[in-house]
Write a protein that binds this DNA or RNA. Structure first.
Lengths: 172, 172
DNA sequence: AGTGAAAGCGTAGACCT
DNA sequence: AGGTCTACGCTTTCACT
């Protein structure tokens, strides 16, 4: 998945530089990005108060951040434990010859709700999956199915000391 | 990080069963959980329309889902590419003897904004990190620092065919 | 690009079924 | 537990700067 092409009008924010890393966001944008990431349901009026602007003005800025693909959506965070998923794990998978992401057996599997993430990676193993399962029995069942696709290596998550909820541009 | 203890009043929704996997959510709760995960800024009035209830009633249900820890917060999703992070990667790290998560050098590192996630896992390697970096130079710099903590194995993300934005209780 | 005012909804509390 | 009513606050638009 690449970066979507910029339409001319959305290039407005970008400085002439070829380096995208510090491109196009002023201090207010950064503050807004921080605020909407930490408080997804914050009102435009409240955003306005926090950055000392009118609700209409921050509304326009947010609209632009959405339109140019910087803000891709809003979501509620839910607790996997509360939903009945007692175990989370990473599974690295080296697919057998002939197994690809398009393969129908792969498609069936990766659409299961327990499969939270599938990343196609370069390196020792080809795919990295993040999964959530009810218990060890459920884990066993899922791994059995996954092992038909390739050799799996499983790492059960004990704790997640960092799960950054906010992402800001890198320091230059 | 375990499941937080339930206060008596929050147990209301739970059926008598010892199995937490199907506990306490009726069809309306499930629909609400789906909706707030896909449209984090949806209004209570709109939620009410979608589930055929009054805004006040869904407001009360949402409040309960928040209070008992099922909904843990709301956030905007942002595009790492748009923010200037061209590369995402998983780094597996086997810490050297004496290096722990509490170690000051570890703490310094994991608070860097490029470190998106740190998971403590059981299995072949002890920690799994998810990172976002500007470019290969930035990656090299970060890996150099990480390698002082332990042996690293890096998998660069080519694409992420699944990044589930919504999580619902497992099928029973 | 930001402000201010006005119309139209959405929210939250009290009260009722 | 859900519905109704109402006062207040928020969003959105538009003319103006």
């Amino acid at each position: 998945m690449g970066v979507p092409a910029l339409s001319p009008k959305d290039q407005r924010g970008f400085r002439g530089s070829a380096d995208a890393s510090s491109a196009g966001f002023d201090a207010v944008d950064l503050k807004l990005l921080e605020l909407v990431q930490t408080e997804g349901r914050i009102t435009l009026s409240e955003l306005g108060r926090r950055v000392s602007m009118s609700p209409a003005a921050v509304g326009e800025r947010i609209r632009r951040l959405e339109a140019n693909g910087t803000i891709t959506g809003y979501t509620a965070r839910v607790s996997p434990e509360r939903l009945g998923y007692g175990i989370q794990a990473f599974v690295r998978l080296s697919p057998h010859g002939g197994i690809t992401l398009c393969h129908f057996r792969t498609q069936e599997l990766i659409h299961r709700p327990e499969i939270l993430e599938v990343h196609h990676v370069i390196g020792e193993d080809c795919w990295i999956l993040k999964i959530a399962v009810r218990n060890t029995g459920h884990l066993e069942e899922l791994l059995e199915q996954l092992s038909s696709l390739g050799r799996t290596t499983t790492s059960i998550v004990l704790s997640s000391p960092v799960e950054r909820s906010i992402l800001l541009p890198p320091a230059p």
